[in-house]
């Protein structure tokens, strides 16, 4: 029992990371119905910015995270304007292929500029301690990741629920023409969604740097795919769904590597994807209204 609790606790920080990435997927899907396959790579760029902020500028990890979030918010807005906006009236498949193109562009530009070599996150940035609570061991790394992710999710939830921009985002996600009739600027609202989603991905990137200690230009691929699964699991386009989906996936993954075989931990995500598509394609929080997926 204690062992199970320990695994779940271990899974929470990974789950929080997946949840943050999944939020961006789901928000962007919600507003322009595009699976932004470059999202995981935006996270990777965030990890690098965080890395350089710590190693070159000598900032602490919080400041590094804020730098990464600001830079990636900008990157997200630029990606949308340059790559996706011209295709807003094009077929979905054209936009999807473009997203894959953007993904490859980010990966290989990073390889070109920074070499494919992995880099070690400076240890000094985050001295690790373990704490013991009621027989459970928790590292300050996990606590840091979990708490910052929760804080970011609360801020996001506040923005989406209570601010004018957040309400405009929901209105545009639901009905663009009706939103235009309210005087909402759809382009700005879409930009804002990319900015928010990409900033969350950047925070997740820095967290992954802290979690695994290493970063590399292709590090965005697998977590990106898993977060996509998490978004589908929760119901794509639904914000609380992405959070819940992320945590479920993170915990499942740690349980599988803890009890079964860590070789299978990546397969779990895709097994979950297949299951959810078979059983309830609209996801846990999705209504069965046909259109959604």
């Amino acid at each position: 029992m204690l062992e199970l609790m320990q695994q779940i606790v271990n899974g929470l920080s990974l789950g929080a990371i997946y949840a943050l990435i999944a939020l961006g997927y789901t928000m962007i899907y919600g507003i322009i119905k595009l699976i932004n396959f470059a999202h995981g790579d935006v996270m990777m760029v965030g990890a690098y910015i965080g890395f350089f902020s710590v190693s070159l500028l000598g900032t602490n990890i919080m400041v590094a995270m804020i730098f990464a979030m600001i830079a990636c918010a900008l990157l997200g807005v630029i990606i949308e304007k340059v790559a996706y906006k011209p295709l807003r009236r094009a077929t979905r498949i054209a936009a999807l292929i473009t997203a894959i193109g953007v993904s490859l562009f980010l990966e290989y530009t990073t390889i070109f500029l920074l070499t494919p070599q992995q880099r070690i996150f400076p240890q000094g940035a985050f001295p690790v301690h373990d704490y013991n609570f009621l027989g459970l061991s928790v590292s300050n790394k996990d606590i840091f990741i979990f708490i910052s992710a929760i804080v970011l999710m609360i801020i996001l939830q506040f923005i989406v629920k209570n601010t004018k921009t957040g309400k405009a985002m929901r209105a545009v996600s639901e009905d663009k023409d009706a939103a235009v009739l309210m005087g909402i600027n759809v382009d700005n609202t879409i930009s804002m969604t990319f900015a928010l989603g990409s900033a969350l991905a950047a925070a997740a990137g820095v967290m992954i740097g802290v979690y695994y200690n290493t970063i590399n230009p292709l590090m965005g691929i697998l977590p990106g795919l898993k977060a996509f699964v998490a978004a589908v699991l929760g119901g794509i386009g639904i914000i609380p769904g992405a959070m819940v989906g992320g945590f479920i996936l993170g915990i499942l993954e740690t349980l599988v590597s803890g009890y079964g075989n860590s070789l299978y931990r990546d397969a779990v995500a895709f097994g979950v994807l297949i299951l959810i598509l078979l059983i309830k394609p609209t996801g846990i929080f999705g209504k069965n209204t046909g259109e959604k997926v």
Partner: peptide, 19 residues
């Protein structure tokens, strides 16, 4: 009608005054 179905009545009205 095109009301924003997933938003509350009050939020819909607020959207009307968006500008």
């Amino acid at each position: 009608r095109r009301v924003f179905a997933a938003m509350t009545v009050l939020e819909n009205l607020e959207m009307g005054a968006y500008l």
